[in-house]
């Protein structure tokens, strides 16, 4: 699956969450996603970028524009070297929170994108990949 374009941006402060939202919006507009899909992607990215900062201790967001046959995909990856998630099943459940959030971040973000993949190793970090196709 060819990657047409990619970009990496760091998330180390709260302001970076805003920059991630703005960047995802910019890419989604360029790729001509509908307004609802743009909003879903931006919202999912906001939730996951905040998790990255609060629980992962900061990390990186990588954006990729993919092409698969006639469809285009926007992939956003969130990678940290934080403590990892011991129980992913539980973390994906609505209402689960180990911090100050509402417990909607992971499960909610998953519902807003087409593909959602999460890998986590305790003590090494977490990597979440979200993709939306059009």
């Amino acid at each position: 699956m060819p990657t047409l374009k990619s970009e990496v941006q760091p998330v180390v402060t709260e302001n970076d969450i805003v920059y991630v939202r703005q960047n995802v919006r910019k890419w989604a507009v360029e790729m001509k996603f509908s307004l609802v899909d743009q909003t879903k992607m931006v919202t999912a990215a906001s939730e996951l970028a905040r998790n990255l900062l609060i629980y992962g201790g900061g990390g990186e967001v990588r954006l990729e524009q993919l092409q698969e046959g006639s469809r285009m995909g926007l992939r956003v990856m969130f990678v940290d070297q934080g403590p990892g998630i011991p129980d992913i099943e539980q973390a994906l459940k609505d209402g689960f929170t180990s911090g100050k959030g509402m417990g909607l971040g992971l499960g909610g973000a998953k519902r807003l994108v087409t593909d959602f993949d999460i890998k986590s190793i305790v003590g090494q970090g977490t990597s979440i990949t979200t993709t939306k196709w059009r």
Partner: peptide, 14 residues
């Protein structure tokens, strides 16, 4: 609230 925001919020679970 913009309609796209409302749709997203509800799907998010809020």
């Amino acid at each position: 609230m913009q309609p796209a925001v409302a749709i997203t919020l509800v799907e998010l679970g809020l």
